[in-house]
Nucleic acid binder design. Structure first.
Lengths: 124, 124
DNA sequence: ATGCGTTATGTTGATTTTTTCATATCGAAT
DNA sequence: ATTCGATATGAAAAAATCAACATAACGCAT
């Protein structure tokens, strides 16, 4: 009964960065957007890929850059292809750092979570 | 400019457990409630201590036990002191495991976050 | 039997978040 | 100059979350 429940347990986590007033800057959600933009080259296609609304995503991006105070994106409007959005070098650097961090955390978390399950399943 | 922003960066994170359908079971919020109940011996005083509403907390607790399928709490009503809520041994075990996990993660996260900051502050 | 403090639960109203819709702007290509 | 596909932005509608209030049940003490 209870042991079965514990074995089915899954771990989830979210990380986010804030400024020194704990006001959010960048988290998992916004990171995903930036990554999708980097891969697709435009905001619109990034939104379609992720299944999220353009309107909301646009707000999110605006808030990131407002918080950080320097641009992560380079946007163009008009032209043959309608426009584009790509990451600045600083933007790429940021998502790479975030990526690396996540990779490490995934590994460490799952390892310790396995230990926790054992702790729960043991009879004391 | 940008480097200053990075130095001011703070890390936050949340962890939570779900069942195998990713339906939430226990997270930081509910963990805090359980811990406060353990320390105070009643739901009401736990809520006052945490500054959260009784009504909402009661709903949260109900959902935990519904998800887990076995009780974490032992409640009594009436009597000289009006009633009480205490953790079952299984409940105590769970919050202890969560506690241990959090402690480890806090340490590991902060360590790797420091590395990430260095990565961001370095010029490439 | 009345009072007291706590658990238990419904309901309603407020607040916040998220979606949806509508519209404007831009610039290359035709 | 018109079309096209993308960015840019406002505003309203809808949904989800949260807070507040009211009320009942319970059982020991007096």
């Amino acid at each position: 009964m209870k042991t079965k429940k514990y074995e089915e347990l899954r771990l989830h986590y979210k990380i986010w960065f804030t400024d020194d007033n704990d006001k959010g800057i960048l988290g998992d959600g916004k990171y995903k957007i930036l990554k999708a933009i980097d891969e697709s080259g435009s905001l619109m296609s990034a939104c379609e890929n992720l299944g999220i609304t353009y309107r909301r995503t646009w707000n999110d991006l605006k808030s990131i850059e407002k918080q950080l105070g320097f641009p992560l994106l380079e946007k163009t409007r008009g032209g043959a292809d309608g426009g584009s959005t790509i990451l600045t070098p600083e933007g790429k650097k940021l998502i790479r750092a975030f990526d690396d961090f996540h990779e490490k955390m995934d590994e460490i978390m799952q390892y310790h979570f396995a230990l926790l399950k054992q702790q729960l399943l043991s009879d004391e």
